[in-house]
């Protein structure tokens, strides 16, 4: 009996050691599944450029629906346990290390939690994007640390006011439906 018990424990140990060999020094981003939920705000993590993730030193992956939520988590929990941080390229949606990405911010860029930050693999793409939009600013990973991280929730207030002004003179300009477009309209 004892011998069998020892054998069992030994084989279990071997198995566990083998299983633990999976975690290497290099942190890899985990693929998104159908059921990922933002660690901070509980929303489903979209399978698009907005998804971000932290891989902890113990190999656990935390996923977020917005880089703002990732920042929120870091603010609360610090970086001691963090192995790596990943964001996705705006165009290709491939995972890139946050340290190597370039960011663009405008309070009216539309992201799930309204932090208004997009990430790019190439700085050129980011600049080109800003040119196309005609607004926003370019940020490096270091700039993120000093970012104010405000969510754009004020916008509706302004719009409400505007609507009330328009109420009487009925000259609401017809605009097309592009979100970026009406973001422009609201910039005063």
């Amino acid at each position: 009996m004892k011998r069998k018990l020892i054998l069992f424990i030994a084989s279990l140990t071997v198995f566990m050691v083998l299983a633990s060999c999976g975690s290497e020094e290099e942190y890899q981003p985990e693929e998104l599944t159908d059921v990922d939920r933002c660690e901070v705000c509980n929303m489903a993590v979209p399978h698009d450029h907005n998804a971000t993730q932290i891989v902890l030193k113990d190999g656990k992956a935390l996923k977020f629906d917005d880089i703002g939520c990732l920042n929120e988590w870091i603010t609360e929990n610090g970086t001691d346990d963090v192995g790596a941080q990943f964001v996705r390229d705006y165009h290709t949606e491939e995972w890139i290390n946050l340290e190597e990405a370039t960011f663009v911010y405008d309070k009216d860029f539309k992201t799930p939690m309204a932090y208004g930050i997009f990430s790019f693999k190439n700085a050129d793409d980011a600049e080109k994007f800003l040119d196309e939009q005609g607004t926003g600013k370019l940020m490096t990973p270091d700039d993120l640390a000093d970012h104010h991280w405000e969510r754009n929730m004020e916008m509706m207030k302004q719009m409400k006011e505007m609507m009330k002004d328009n109420e009487h003179n009925h000259d609401h300009s017809s605009e097309n439906d592009d979100e970026e477009e009406h973001a422009e309209n609201d910039e005063q």
Binding site: F15, M16, A19, S20, G22, S23, L56, D58, G59, K60
Partner: peptide
């Protein structure tokens, strides 16, 4: 006590 990645597989077994 195990590395995070091996907790669940071990548990499942």
């Amino acid at each position: 006590q195990l590395p995070y990645a091996s907790i669940q597989p071990t548990l499942e077994i």
